[in-house]
Amino acid sequence: MDDRLLLAASTFCFLLGFAYTMFALGTGRYQPSRFNFAAMAGGFAFQSCFLVQRGHALNACPLTNLFEVLIFLSWSIVLLYFVVGTTYRLSLLGVFTAPLAFMFQAFALIVPLDSPPGLRARHLAQPWLETHAAVSIIAYGAFALAGVAGVMYLIQERQLKTHHFRRLFFQLPPIADLAVAINRLILTGFILLTVGLLSGFAVRVEWGKVIWGVGVWLIYGGILQADKWRRVTPRRVAQLAVAAFSITLATLWGLNFINPAGSL
């Protein structure tokens, strides 16, 4: 089966799950349903098949261009959603995760980012480099999910402040739970990124990328430290989680634009 077809099927699943939930929320009768979970699980299964097929074809971790990076990032976000969403009973996290996964994959499918095999970074077929790239992308997945939880926090917080409750208010988790989830997701991402950077140092990846990675590491480390010292309010942490991921995503794109053949 053509791997792009697998990707299209996965993207469609996320779109379907998101559309269904938006419709249910619109009618005010949203209940965490099997349909929503099934759509996310279906999307994840197709994503996984795509990555396995690509990995076999490349004989390496499929992180050789921005196209694959985006799919791997989307996969890690959904993977973390299944872990975190279940653990913290943040069922609505899926509603916010689905559009993000859909956006990444639709973008990857529409924009010609998938370079021909000959142009790809073959040097990735080294265990340390694969570890560095894969662990780093999963870390960015955790940061993405922290950003998603940050958006949920800000929506809920605004409703509590203004006393105007929309239908979403009753479905969103308490802000205390969201604050804990944001903190733990950033901590998870930070630990993974530390491992990713250390494995990157071991194989001496390009300095530009190392500096970028260290920059991201410092931003999230700063957020964690400020939160620990209680120098910032939970609302500020949520805002920082959203801003930090937006910056990370934008710079990732910029970095790849400068060096399209490279991996992370």
Binding site: R29, L160, P173, P174, A176
Partner: peptide, 26 residues
């Protein structure tokens, strides 16, 4: 109860306070 919003939202001052507290603190 599950297919309509007939039980949706608190309808007394006390229950509003409790619901809001739970939305803030869990």
């Amino acid at each position: 109860r599950t297919r309509t919003n007939i039980t949706r939202g608190p309808v007394s001052v006390g229950s509003v306070a409790v619901d809001l507290a739970e939305k803030i603190f869990g």
